[in-house]
Amino acid sequence: MTVIEVHNLRKAYGDTVAVRDVSFSVERGEIFGILGPNGAGKTTTVECIAGLRTPDGGTIGVLGRPPHDTALRSLVGVQLQESRLPDKLSGREALELFSSFYPEPADWQALARDLDVPLATRYAKMSGGQKQRLSIALALVGNPEIAVLDELTTGLDPQARRDTWGLIEAVRDRGVTILLVTHFMEEAERLCDRLAVIDHGAVVALDTPAGLIAETSTEQKIRFRPSAEVDLALLEARPEVHHARRHGSQIEVTGSGNLLHAVTSVLAVNQIIANDLRIEQASLDDAFVRLTGRSHSGE
């Protein structure tokens, strides 16, 4: 069942077109990612979905309603990028206050425990990670059917980031659909069931993370340090091997098909052992660079 449908969304600020043409749909219970370089139009897209901005063109349906429908405010939890709280408000006060806004709120104390939100600390005294976790807790405190999370783990340390991923998966397991905006490849690869890659205000690819990687990259790469001199021509004689190169003491072989078997059998015949053998698989990062023609400027 489709819970979010976006068709030909368009939004401009003056002469600047932030979103040119974005279409996708999100199914119930999935974690759907929006990935893209800075300024690609990710945040504008989710702000239109959250009813905070009025699109200039296209249509959006959230749970079958237009995004500005007030009934959605208690069904959709939103964590906004760059949204802060009053300095002197404590974690407890914020959670208690926001939980009172909703008809069927979650247990905010349990949420604070799961997310490790400091209850007695005032907002101004919280670390970046604590503020971020409080912000996520506030998005979930209303027991939403859909959670929209913009730059979920920006500002968190690696451990906190992994903890948060675990929490997001737990939230999804409770049946909440999650729309996740991110520029962390690792996060998208680990969490998202499907991804829309947005660049220059348009969707350039839409697939599962594995699908995106497979689509954009067919080449494999193997590196190793041989125990004795290898004749590169012997390696390149195999049809699976496209190139074999020497980098100092290392050899790098690129190719396709059953490349590993081809390389190891050549080495075995010549009684050479491959030390420190590494197979480099294409990552979402590589796929992203190919799709958008630039390396992402994250971290």
């Binding site: 405010r73 208690s74 906004l80 949204s83």
Partner: peptide, 12 residues
Amino acid sequence: RGVLRRFATTPV
């Protein structure tokens, strides 16, 4: 600080 926007995403 976006507090007003934050409220705009809630039922209040």
